[in-house]
Amino acid sequence: MIFCVEDDPNIRELEVYTLQSVGFKALGIGSGDELFKALECGKPTLILLDIMLPGEDGLSLLKRLRSDKRTAQVPVIMATA
Rank of each mutant, 00 (worst) to 15 (best):
Met1Val: 07
Val5Cys: 08
Glu6Asn: 10
Glu6Ala: 08
Glu6Tyr: 08
Asp7Ser: 08
Asp7Gln: 08
Asp7Thr: 10
Asp8Trp: 04
Asp8His: 12
Pro9Cys: 05
Asn10Gln: 14
Ile11Met: 15
Ile11Ala: 15
Ile11Arg: 14
Arg12Val: 08
Arg12His: 13
Arg12Gln: 15
Leu14Trp: 07
Leu14Gln: 10
Glu15Val: 07
Glu15Cys: 14
Val16Gly: 02
Val16Ser: 06
Tyr17Asp: 15
Tyr17Ser: 15
Tyr17His: 14
Thr18Tyr: 08
Thr18Trp: 06
Thr18Arg: 10
Leu19Ser: 11
Gln20Trp: 10
Ser21Gln: 13
Val22Arg: 10
Val22Glu: 09
Gly23Ile: 11
Phe24Thr: 06
Phe24Lys: 15
Phe24Ile: 09
Ala26His: 08
Ala26Leu: 12
Leu27Glu: 13
Gly28Ser: 05
Ile29Trp: 06
Ile29His: 05
Gly30Leu: 01
Gly30Gln: 08
Gly32Met: 07
Asp33Thr: 13
Asp33Ile: 12
Leu35Met: 08
Leu35Glu: 01
Leu35Val: 06
Leu35Trp: 04
Leu35Gln: 02
Phe36Pro: 02
Phe36Cys: 07
Lys37Ala: 14
Lys37Gln: 13
Ala38Pro: 03
Ala38Arg: 08
Leu39Arg: 10
Leu39Lys: 11
Cys41Ile: 14
Cys41Pro: 00
Gly42Glu: 12
Pro44Asp: 10
Thr45Lys: 14
Thr45Ser: 15
Ile47Gln: 00
Leu48Tyr: 06
Leu48Ser: 09
Leu49Cys: 11
Leu49Lys: 06
Leu49Met: 14
Leu49Phe: 09
Asp50Pro: 10
Asp50Ile: 12
Ile51Gly: 07
Met52Gln: 15
Met52Asn: 15
Pro54Arg: 09
Pro54Lys: 12
Gly55Lys: 06
Glu56Trp: 03
Glu56Gly: 04
Asp57Ala: 04
Asp57Cys: 07
Gly58Lys: 06
Leu59Lys: 00
Leu59Ser: 03
Ser60Pro: 02
Leu61Asn: 05
Lys63Ser: 02
Lys63Asp: 03
Lys63Thr: 00
Arg64Thr: 01
Arg64Gly: 00
Arg64Pro: 05
Arg64Cys: 02
Leu65Pro: 01
Arg66Tyr: 03
Arg66Ser: 05
Arg66Met: 04
Ser67Asp: 07
Ser67Ile: 00
Asp68Lys: 01
Asp68Val: 06
Lys69Leu: 10
Arg70Gln: 13
Thr71Ile: 04
Thr71Met: 02
Ala72His: 09
Ala72Cys: 11
Gln73Arg: 12
Gln73Glu: 11
Gln73Gly: 07
Val74Phe: 03
Val74His: 02
Val74Pro: 03
Val74Asn: 00
Val74Glu: 00
Pro75Tyr: 05
Pro75Leu: 02
Pro75Ser: 03
Pro75Val: 05
Val76Pro: 03
Val76Cys: 00
Ile77Trp: 01
Ala79Glu: 05
Ala79Ser: 10
Ala79His: 06
Ala79Tyr: 06
Ala79Gly: 04
Ala79Val: 13
Thr80Lys: 03
